[in-house]
Design a protein around this nucleic acid. Structure first.
Length: 313
DNA sequence: TCGATTTGACCGAT
DNA sequence: ATCGGTCAAATCGA
C-alpha cells in the first residue's frame, strides 16, 4: 500500500514545514559539529550530536504521525557555544531545555528525603505520547508506581540509572492515556547530564544493503537506529541519543539512503523519502513523500556528516 | 550473588 | 485530609 506525500492529510503543509524545520536544524547542527570536531571540543560535539539526533527523532516522529503538537517533540538541549565558530547557529531552544554541559554541583546523596520535592513544577519537562516503546538510549530505573486519583491507570516513575554515580537528575513518568489505553504518555523531567547514557543507546548503523557487484552501481545506504540493548518492554523505551556502527559507507552522490528505526524504515531515494512500518523494508511500503532537491541535499548532507564525523574511517 | 522491580510507607504540597 | 513523588525493604530473576 503506497500513498504520496501530497495525498495524505497527515502530510499537510504545516507538517511539511515542521519536518523541514527539524531537518534544517539538524543540517545546521551537523555543520556546527564538523567545526567543533575540527576544533577538538569533544564536550560540545557530544551536545551537538544529541541535538542532531533530536532533530532526526522529531522528524521521524512527525513523519510517522507520532505527534500531536510541537511541544511533544523532544526539546533540543542548549549547547553552549564557547567557540565563536558556532555562535551563529539558529538553534531553537525549547523552554524546557537545559544546559547539556551543566555541571552537577553537588552529587551528595540526600539521606531519607522520601516524600520531598512533591508536586514538581511542570517547567523543564516535556511530554510525549507513544504507542510503542522506542528506546531513547538512556538507562532508566523504575523507582515507584502509584495509583493516581481519578485515573484508571497507574503512573510509573523512572529515574536515570546514573542518578547516584553521576548525579544525573533526569526522570520520567509513564502513564497510559485515559482515552486511549494503547497510548502511553511519557513525561520527562530534566535533561540527562550523565555521559554514560550517551554511550549506551541504540545503534545508528550505516549499513550497506547491497553487496552484489550488480548493485554497486546503484548502491544503497541504510542507516539503522537499532536497539541493541534487548530492553524489556516494561523497562525501557524512549528515544535514542547515541550510536555505534557495525558497517559504514560514505554516501556518494546519487546514492539511495535508507533509515531504519525500531518501528519504521525510511528510504531516501531521488526526490522521495519512503517510510516503511515495522521494519518491513520490503513488504511494508506505506508512505512516500516528495522532497525537492534542496531538501534532499540537506538530508544527504546531514547523513554524510554522520558518516564522516561520527564514524571516522 | 547482584542488579532490577515491586510495593507499602513516608512526608511535603495543596 | 488527601494526593502524589520518593524511599527502601522485600522480592524476583538472570
Amino acid at each position: 500500500m503506497e500513498c504520496t506525500w501530497q495525498a495524505q492529510s497527515l502530510c499537510s503543509w504545516n507538517l511539511w514545514q515542521r519536518v523541514k524545520e527539524e531537518l534544517d536544524r539538524g543540517h545546521e547542527l551537523a555543520n556546527q559539529l564538523r567545526r567543533v570536531v575540527e576544533n577538538g571540543d569533544g564536550g560540545l560535539a557530544e551536545a551537538l550530536v544529541t541535538n542532531i539526533l533530536c532533530s532526526i527523532t522529531n522528524s521521524l516522529s512527525l513523519l510517522t504521525g507520532n505527534h500531536e503538537s510541537k511541544e511533544e517533540l523532544i526539546p533540543h538541549m542548549q549547547a553552549h557555544t564557547s567557540s565563536s565558530t558556532v555562535a551563529a547557529a539558529p538553534t531553537i531552544v525549547e523552554s524546557s531545555s537545559c544546559d547539556a554541559h551543566e555541571v552537577i554541583k553537588s552529587t551528595e546523596r540526600i539521606v531519607d528525603r522520601r516524600g520531598s520535592n512533591k508536586r514538581r513544577k511542570t517547567s523543564n519537562s516535556w511530554t510525549r505520547d507513544t504507542t510503542d516503546f522506542v528506546d531513547d538510549g538512556h538507562a532508566w530505573r523504575k523507582y515507584g508506581q502509584k495509583e493516581i486519583h481519578n485515573a484508571s491507570h497507574p503512573r510509573s516513575y523512572f529515574r536515570c540509572s546514573h542518578k547516584y554515580d553521576q548525579g544525573c537528575k533526569a526522570t520520567k513518568q509513564v502513564q497510559k492515556v485515559e482515552d486511549d489505553p494503547c497510548l502511553f504518555r511519557i513525561t520527562y523531567f530534566e535533561n540527562h547530564t550523565c555521559t554514560h547514557s550517551f554511550l549506551k543507546a541504540p545503534e545508528l548503523i550505516l549499513d550497506s544493503i547491497s553487496s552484489s557487484p550488480r548493485e554497486e552501481s546503484d548502491s544503497k545506504l541504510m542507516i539503522t537506529f537499532e536497539n541493541t540493548n534487548n530492553l524489556k518492554y516494561k523497562q525501557e523505551h524512549p528515544f535514542f541519543s547515541s550510536y555505534s556502527s557495525t558497517e559504514r559507507e560514505i554516501i556518494k552522490p546519487n546514492h539511495e539512503a535508507s533509515i531504519q528505526s525500531s518501528s519504521c524504515d525510511y528510504r531516501v531515494s531521488g526526490d522521495q523519502l519512503t517510510v516503511f512500518e515495522s521494519s518491513e523494508l520490503i513488504s511494508g511500503l506505506l508512505k512516500t513523500m516528495e522532497f525537492d532537491h534542496e531538501d534532499m541535499l540537506y538530508y544527504r548532507t546531514m547523513i554524510g556528516y554522520f558518516d564522516q564525523e561520527i564514524f571516522p574511517m
